[in-house]
């Protein structure tokens, strides 16, 4: 699979958009890139899984369960996804 290169900003925007889709009640919040999503925004297991699934779907990145802690914040998630999409 060839991945279309995306900037970190673009990935950040996609991650935020996916988050507000799975948690529409957060749509009005301004979520800081370094805020802990589960601690600060009360994202529960189902929300988090739906978010990971959406990221997988949108960006084609396989995200094993062991890597979930690396997606604790929007910024960390963008870094993780950027690296995962980088050519070998």
């Amino acid at each position: 699979m060839t991945t279309h290169p995306l900037s970190r900003e673009a990935i950040l925007a996609i991650a935020l958009e996916a988050l507000t889709r799975v948690a529409p009640d957060l749509a009005d919040e301004s979520i800081a890139p370094d805020a802990d999503l589960r601690e600060d925004y009360d994202l529960d297991s189902m929300d988090f899984l739906n978010w990971v699934a959406a990221l997988h779907e949108r960006l084609g990145v396989d995200i094993p369960e062991l890597d979930y802690p690396k997606l604790a914040t929007l910024g960390a998630a963008a870094d993780y996804l950027l690296q995962a999409r980088a050519p070998e």
Binding site: S45, M46, L49, V52, A53, L55, H56, E57, D62, I63, P64, E65
Partner: peptide
């Protein structure tokens, strides 16, 4: 659960609940 979810894409994974 970990083994089963490891074989699946995120949309197909299960929660322990």
């Amino acid at each position: 659960l970990e083994r089963r979810n490891g074989e699946r894409s995120p949309g197909q994974r299960l929660l322990s609940g």
